[in-house]
């Protein structure tokens, strides 16, 4: 009845700059170490980039994910710049990203956006980092089976991982998306379930400045309840 088959999307969602930011965030959630592969090794950002370029028929929550990333990356980038002396989000040190995400998870980042919006965004990032490492390779993550082999799934046994001698995944696929692929951006002028395909990445960056977030960023914070705005915008 469903006849389901994975189909790679014709485009990708993020601009190259956004893609680097996503990589840094996912790596902080599932960090690679000397003895374990992490989100970057697995290509988790490629997984998200592909997922968001699919439509609601693949999964009804994809339009919501798109909106979260489109609104969330500028907020996180602004927070990074403010807190770490103008640094770009993608250039932060792991401890800095961890500090940023800790506040996001607790809803305390910037204090300007609603708490639940922040924790929801964090939940999505966390889910996507895990999916990018542990979902089947057909979805674009778990590159070269690197995470499953280390974890010992499905048939094991778990193999040790040694970063010093690791030569990268056996079947890595592209580290960065093919520059020729069209980029599917989020267009706030359209309803969440509709996307436009845009050729010029610059066009998308301008589209991701979301008026709603700008409004929230100017809200007054109650000093007794840091992290919570005095009132939700109507």
């Amino acid at each position: 009845m469903l006849g389901w088959k994975y189909r790679e999307p014709a485009g990708r969602f993020f601009t190259p700059a956004q893609r680097k930011q996503v990589e840094v965030l996912l790596e902080a959630i599932l960090p690679g170490g000397a003895a374990n592969p992490g989100a970057t090794d697995a290509g988790a950002a490629e997984y998200v980039d592909r997922l968001l370029a699919m439509d609601a028929a693949t999964y009804y929550d994809i339009p919501r994910f798109r909106q979260q990333y489109a609104q969330g990356l500028p907020v996180l980038a602004a927070a990074a710049a403010e807190r770490f002396g103008g640094k770009d989000l993608s250039a932060l040190a792991p401890a800095e990203v961890t500090a940023l995400l800790t506040d996001l998870a607790a809803g305390k980042l910037l204090g300007a956006t609603p708490q639940s919006w922040q924790s929801d965004l964090f939940a999505t990032l966390r889910a996507h980092a895990i999916e990018g490492c542990f979902a089947d390779r057909r979805w674009g993550g778990n590159r070269g089976n690197v995470v499953w082999e280390w974890y010992g799934y499905p048939t094991g046994p778990a193999r040790d991982f040694d970063r010093a001698t690791w030569k990268g995944p056996a079947n890595p696929g592209p580290a960065q998306p093919d520059a020729a692929l069209p980029i599917v951006g989020w267009n706030p002028g359209l309803s969440g379930s509709t996307v436009t395909s845009v050729k010029d990445p610059g066009e998308i960056q301008s589209a991701t400045v979301v008026p709603e977030i700008a409004v929230r960023a100017t809200q007054v914070i109650d000093p007794a309840k840091p992290g919570q705005p005095l009132a939700e915008p109507a």
Partner: peptide, 15 residues
């Protein structure tokens, strides 16, 4: 809702 170093610790334990 583990993430970061605690999540890696959890995975190490599982495997």
């Amino acid at each position: 809702n583990l993430w970061g170093a605690p999540l890696v610790q959890y995975l190490q334990e599982l495997r």
